[in-house]
Design a protein around this nucleic acid. Structure first.
Lengths: 343, 343
DNA sequence: TTGAAAGCGCTAACAC
DNA sequence: GTGTTAGCGCTTTCAA
């Protein structure tokens, strides 16, 4: 492997000048720059990142902690983060925490720190008990402040705006007396956020809160939840915390003889690519993963590169309600049918 | 940040001994080991990976080139790779190539090489023209040999076994006269592989090859394909190259007045988590992403750490056909209905 | 605008 | 078992 001095020798300059050229530093004559570039090309020279990191104390890389699942939401956010990181010129290091891993997020952060990342992203915060995580680099958390001890902790979020409870409101606007919720696993911040949005929407209309059914994001758990919901003869509207569970709910309702949306309306969350093509096409809530990831990473890079400036505020990226055919006004009360399955 | 010498001083040993302890090298007395560990703990010491990589010439990290999509297949494979890499003790660096990126896979590989990875994984090979990629570390490609120039190129694959054309055979076994194929984008190796499997299954029965409709993996493209297929009055069986497209096909057929599976059977590929809960539940092909990733990474690590030994053969991980309700025997010929939509 | 010298914090090779 | 001595290939600082 050729080194910087080899390039320098070939170009007839000092090694420092090679370094200057390759780092786009000023104060190099165009002529020298050309010569160095040509020499580097000719030798097939590549900068050695380890040496660079050791000498400079910075690795130009950002570490991300993921949850190791291929679920649409987390996967989409991760892809958004990848794109956004690339755009900033940093490299990406990934550590996934498996559910049930005893070291959890703290262990993942520790291993990223050991790798010498300049900043850390927690892509999908889950609650691991109140273990404090110490980091000596800035940390970006999507959605919620976590118990972190770091020079700067920045939070970027989705749907903190008015549209956060769009799903529930949509159903209430259609005339449903109340809305049942199939929640995600409550260790996940995203699940708690959606539950809270549902609560808030009901409360805003002065409605009481029917019991919540909790799933695990999977269609199978949605199906199980749907079977329980089908026992409720008054059921006319369901808000599921993601599309997969919504699809499971719909299937269970269908099997219980409830038509969707004629008897029961169902709303999902995520707008997975198939949502428009299942039967019935799913009304759902779309999240702007890319925009959120981009904005969050800009903040993080700012925190890394301007440690003393104030952090700008993260812009709000409202979610978007996509209305399709799985929601409709409630059926007119038909005594006898109302409690058909429960009696 | 404390350094190795600081720990050494505190423990009353040499810096090299600290290094030995932290690298689990032999020839350190248990007593000294304890003292060093205690000192490191007390100072909050962390090994500096950049220095380690510079001195040793190895970064203990593996780079993976992904395609930057949240599609179920690629995302699942990426998660499998993450898990597998973690199990090997290596760190993970990720670079995503965006479709249409001029530098493509070659550029991604180049940037990983600059980061000093010890090995490279191409998770989702796509055809980028015959640009030769030079790497000076071992490379693992899932599915197909790529034009690589590297010390070792290892390939790990899925379904090279007999079950590869299970989907098409299943439909033929049910009595369908032929099977139409909705292919994935042919730049993708995975799409070409499935197309080839479909071809082989037809050829094995001496059947001719009906025209292929190509999609882009999305449900929307499956829907478009389904509309075209619906013009074929003799259509009774479709094999889509992934589940999303299959779901789109089903919706288009439904809208064209074809019942699934009564009039037309549809098989997908991937077994996405909702496949069992859509209407009708989808017959599909499941891939063992985790097993494939694990096996592939073992090979790669072997190639990294035993550069001179022969590579063991990658085991075959057959795909699994999951039969659900979207497939059935073809309808009995009903003249008049057969060409209903095309005439 | 360019160059020389001095490390960055570790591992490798060898002595003891 | 343990310590000593050299670097690894850059960036930083300072001088020219």
């Amino acid at each position: 492997m050729p080194r910087g001095v080899d390039v320098a020798r070939l170009a007839g300059v000092s090694q420092k000048t090679v370094s200057r050229v390759l780092n786009n530093e000023p104060y190099v004559s165009t002529e020298v720059r050309q010569r160095v570039l040509a020499a580097a090309e000719q030798l097939g020279y590549r900068l050695n990142n380890a040496a660079r990191a050791l000498a400079s104390g910075r690795s130009r890389s950002i570490g991300v902690v993921t949850l190791g699942t291929a679920l649409y939401g987390p996967a989409s956010l991760l892809m958004g983060i990848e794109r956004a990181v690339r755009a900033t010129g940093y490299a990406l290091r990934v550590v996934s925490t498996v559910e049930g891993d005893p070291t959890g997020i703290a262990g993942a952060v520790e291993s990223l720190l050991e790798q010498g990342v300049d900043g850390i992203v927690i892509s999908e915060p889950i609650d691991e008990g109140a273990e404090l995580v110490r980091a000596d680099v800035p940390v970006l958390v999507f959605g919620t402040p976590l118990p972190f001890s770091a020079p700067r902790v920045v939070t970027a979020g989705v749907g903190s705006g008015e549209l956060a409870h769009a799903a529930t409101e949509h159903l209430l606007d259609l005339g449903h007396a109340t809305v049942r919720h199939v929640a995600g696993p409550q260790r996940w911040y995203a699940a708690r956020e959606r539950l809270a949005a549902w609560r808030a929407a009901l409360a805003a209309r002065g409605l009481g809160e029917p019991p919540v059914v909790e799933g695990d994001w999977s269609a199978a758990s949605g199906y199980a939840a749907g079977r329980r919901l089908a026992e409720d003869g008054d059921l006319t509207a369901v808000f599921a915390a993601n599309d997969d569970m919504a699809i499971g709910v719909i299937r269970a309702l269908l099997e219980a003889g409830r038509r969707v949306p004629d008897d029961v309306s169902v709303v999902g969350y995520d707008d997975v690519p198939v949502a428009a093509y299942v039967t019935p096409p799913l009304t759902t809530v779309r999240q702007p993963f890319d925009a959120v990831a981009t904005a969050g990473l800009q903040l993080l890079v700012h925190a890394i590169e301007q440690p003393h400036e104030d952090l700008p505020q993260a812009p709000d990226h409202p979610v978007e309600l996509v209305v399709r055919a799985s929601t409709a006004p409630p059926p007119r009360k038909t005594p006898g049918r109302g409690r058909a399955t429960s009696g």
